[in-house]
Design a protein around this nucleic acid. Structure first.
Lengths: 350, 350
DNA sequence: CACGACAAGGTAAGCGCTTGCATTGAGGCC
DNA sequence: GGCCTCAATGCAAGCGCTTACCTTGTCGTG
């Protein structure tokens, strides 16, 4: 077979076959002491610990996670839940979380929700039962049913981006970020500002897209501008979704001079739609996104950037700290930052 | 606490607290029968199975993965290894693999290698010991040391993209894909064709970037064109890397009229570099990538696309099939396809 | 009709750890 | 010097499953 592994030579057989008993024997102590020494418990004499460590290394001992989990009730595993892996925000967030976990010697169990679109198959939290010590949820939507299931797991959970009552949250101030975006357009002289927003089906106020829509609306009102219904073009949070929504928006409202897209991926779709119409982003129509996508620079996309990697990292870190007894802060808000590039420019003088 | 869960009402207490014994008692059978019934073993009378299932559902029973793994030696978990999650190819591949695993009721354990760049901290396969039944490696590079560690795990493994002797492989024909790209440029009249290639440090012939470079070189030779050293610009496989490499290439060889980038992300960096110089991709200089990145359309990027999601899905599926005794094919080659967009065009007539 | 074969299910011994409790010395104290 | 304390370690009972092996009841057969 291609993956065969036989005939180990040298001191250590392949890992997975040497148990704690053999280490105990080799070190001349009991298995209890080995267990304690390996976990660095203070009740073991340093000399003993050293001896155990040496024996373990010599034998190539690797503890069995299953046995450890069964005996202790702790899995040293954290569930990572996201609706998709291939979308920028989730990929980046998950990467941050994974790194934080790995650094603490925890495992990351990946759970990508079945479908990107609504309605999707519901998230079955049951599969995480007894399997994880904590859960990180990075998502845009989460139904009440899903929340209920999550609660049943009876482990700490933290939400990134989407907010859930009674759960700690890591994210940005979505309304403020939206306001920043609109303000930037306003400052450039734009007065008819459309919005490529989150899905219309989802009126869940916990959704970040909903908050961004609110921010857009509020900012327009502040300046006495129209936030008419037909300036709001709901979209799937993908480039394709942004493309379609922008086309619909421009068909409906040819007077629009600027578009605030609720994510960078939809903003890119918007740019695509403009180009298809022979319009130059930043000159004919301005486009601003929200994310800080790593490919934004390539497109010259102006955006309000958020630290996605850090949000994932911090969410995992908080969970790990909570496992050590630290309190979980209810809200962790990361700053956003306007990154002006070429997709926005002065409003065309009509 | 924010995540508290107390006072369950109704039939099922929270999962995680009811054990197989209680189900056995409720169903009036032994735990052995419950175990068999739940796994659908044929030696259980259908009526008995039904009774067990009913009891289990009634009690909200969820088996303990740790206990099951400890007793059976099988974890129903597959390790997913990739150098990064946030890069398109890996995110998409992992997503495919995760879906295949989830569909089969397997878990996906995520392991992202510490650093994107070489030299990176080495992959410690040890963390996967006793923890996974199989491993999917999606990567560009894999050192001999890492392969040795992987072998020690003594579980089936499959490689995506990067090839390893004696391991099954899922991927594309990188040389042929590169040839397709170069041929496309040649057909458009280009005669000085640069290459934004993989890292120069890595001369591992197993690396897909290496094979793409070979394909580029071979295709040029076929047409009697120069594949001079200075036409080859090594880069990190990111947009930023492609940006820098392209700048270096154009500084060195102002006569270049077309660039074949070894990945879409580097191709996007190349486009960025062109625009920065006031050059229009597809008119002044043509750019072709290789991947089929979902944002390629937005940029009008011509590319040779590969089915990343399917590669991940298939790799996982093969591993699962192998667990059921099916043979693991040594090579699974997916087709690639030229997708012509606007970043390539006829060579400027000099 | 006795016996073997087989289907269906039970018994109990682990799997490899963790941990509450017991044990053993060695000092410290009055 | 006897006794208490405490540090250091051992003992052994699980954790919640799986599975080899055994038991039982039913049929089919010669």
């Amino acid at each position: 077979m291609s993956t065969g592994n036989t005939g180990e030579s040298g001191t250590s057989a392949h890992p997975g076959n040497v148990s704690i008993d053999e280490v105990a024997k080799a070190a001349g102590v009991s298995t209890a002491t080995v267990s304690r020494a390996l976990r660095g418990l203070p009740s073991v004499k340093p000399a003993t610990t050293a001896a155990v460590l040496a024996a373990a290394a010599q034998l190539g001992y690797v503890p069995s996670p299953s046995a450890s989990a069964l005996a202790s009730g702790r899995t040293r595993t954290v569930g990572l839940v996201a609706p998709a892996i291939s979308r920028w925000f989730f990929a980046t967030t998950l990467e941050g979380a994974e790194h934080a976990l790995r650094a603490a010697n925890y495992d990351a169990l990946l759970y990508s929700l079945p479908d990107t679109q609504l309605p999707r198959k519901t998230f079955e939290a049951e599969v995480l039962a007894r399997r994880v010590d904590a859960v990180v949820v990075a998502s845009m939507f989460f139904s009440q049913d899903e929340v209920a299931q999550l609660r049943q797991l009876n482990v700490p959970a933290i939400f990134i981006s989407v907010r859930q009552p009674d759960f700690p949250h890591v994210g940005i101030d979505d309304e403020a970020a939206a306001t920043t975006a609109v303000q930037h357009l306003f400052d450039l002289g734009h007065r008819v500002i459309g919005h490529v927003s989150g899905s219309a089906e989802d009126r869940n106020p916990a959704a970040p897209t909903m908050r961004r829509r609110n921010g857009w609306r509020a900012a327009l009102r502040t300046h006495g501008l129209s936030a008419a219904q037909d300036l709001d073009a709901p979209a799937d949070m993908t480039a394709e979704g942004g493309y379609q929504a922008t086309n619909a928006l421009l068909d409906r409202r040819p007077d629009v001079t600027a578009v605030f897209a609720a994510s960078d991926e939809t903003a890119m779709g918007a740019i695509h739609a403009l180009r298809r119409r022979g319009l130059e982003p930043g000159r004919d129509i301005s486009v601003i996104g929200l994310d800080g996508h790593n490919l934004g620079q390539v497109l010259g996309l102006t955006t309000v950037s958020q630290p996605a990697y850090q949000q994932g990292f911090e969410a995992a870190r908080l969970l790990l700290a909570a496992a050590d007894g630290a309190p979980l802060p209810e809200q962790t808000v990361f700053p956003t930052e306007l990154v002006a590039r070429t997709s926005t420019g002065p409003a065309p003088t009509a």
